[in-house]
Design a protein around this nucleic acid. Structure first.
Lengths: 194, 194
DNA sequence: GAGGTTAGTGACACCCAGTGCCACCGGGCA
DNA sequence: TGCCCGGTGGCACTGGGTGTCACTAACCTC
């Protein structure tokens, strides 16, 4: 019932390559399957959606984020704990950075993939909101847990965008810069600029 | 080349109705067209996507937001100006609230529509980022303008969610509550809770 | 009032994503 | 050798979205 790991890996690699070269919408599932030396039917057994081929092991990613948040020390400020967890989860080895760049360029650049990302990010938001709710003694669907979850994810996404566009800064540095702004209520735009 | 306004209105109404009753994925474009007394082909001339039938005149909405932001006084804090613009754009007459609730329940509840929303919201983000960039003398793709745009939209979305789930608070009140938290750097979770 | 233009529409054919179903193939196992 | 079973390929089908053409009704001109 399951899928052989190398078949999945070949499909993922082929998909990433073709999407980057030709554009997400232009590539058909048949072409990916051909490039990976397998069939269209097998592609859709590995990935529920064409878009899912771009996301590696994102489920494991979210699970790891959840564990990190659960292990947070109580005396650490909540935003700092979330920032630290985001930084740790996204601490890739140098050798993995090119693939990460390729993946994120697609996700942040292709409209269809941006849309799909929303569904995947909903899991992240849920995990973060539960963490905040636990720390605050509120329910996860109250205003504050929800708001912290969505705005910290907004910060993380923005950090990824500038990291991707810039090329000189570290991903960790970009994440810290974004979270600092958020945690301080955007001090840089506090003084009326006139 | 254009589409008759009442055809579009009938289709939109039928779509909203059917989506709410049966669920977005369960309704086919044919069924919507039949319910509106027209053809499938005409449906796709009115709306590029099945999902687009849920969004009313969202383009006009964004344009109005842009005008409001452009007319902002220079001595008003940036976040306050954005909050005021969001509140004003979402200041519906009481008679329009039921339709708004219906629309937002679909957009926030159906995964496929959540995904599609990301594409529409990208326009909002661009407009807000340009406003912030103008006020700060930065480019719209710098960290701070992007971050303010995405996190204020996160705040607005969260406000919509609690407004929808709650039923007692005003939309304006929910927006102000969310923006206040954001502008102050989440003071409610500042003290280490231990 | 006849003839031409034009916008809106409907009908049909097509491409492609995604799914259900079944047949096949290869390897472990009695 | 015969059986079982996980991975796979082929096939047909649904449904979203598009390009094309033919039709119709209004409007305009002579």
């Amino acid at each position: 019932m399951d899928v052989r790991a190398d078949t999945r890996a070949r499909l993922q690699q082929a998909a990433l390559e073709l999407f980057t070269r030709t554009g997400f919408e232009q590539v058909t599932a048949d072409e990916i399957a051909d490039a990976a030396g397998t069939s269209r039917r097998t592609f859709f057994r590995c990935f529920a959606t064409k878009a899912d081929a771009v996301w590696g092991e994102f489920g494991a990613h979210v699970a790891r984020l959840e564990r990190l948040l659960a292990a947070t020390r109580e005396d650490q400020p909540v935003l700092a704990s979330i920032c630290a967890a985001y930084v740790e989860v996204n601490d890739y080895a140098d050798g993995d950075l090119p693939i990460l760049r390729q993946r994120m360029a697609l996700i942040l650049g292709e409209p269809a993939l941006q849309a799909h990302a929303q569904v995947r990010y909903a899991d992240v938001d849920r995990v973060v909101a539960e963490h905040v709710a636990r720390r605050l003694g509120q329910t996860p669907d109250a205003l504050l847990p929800r708001l912290v979850a969505t705005s910290t994810r907004a910060a993380a996404t923005t950090a990824f965008e500038v990291w991707l566009a810039d090329g000189t800064t570290t991903l960790a540095a970009a994440l810290h810069a974004a979270f600092d702004q958020l945690a301080l209520g955007f001090p840089d735009l506090r003084p009326p600029s006139a």
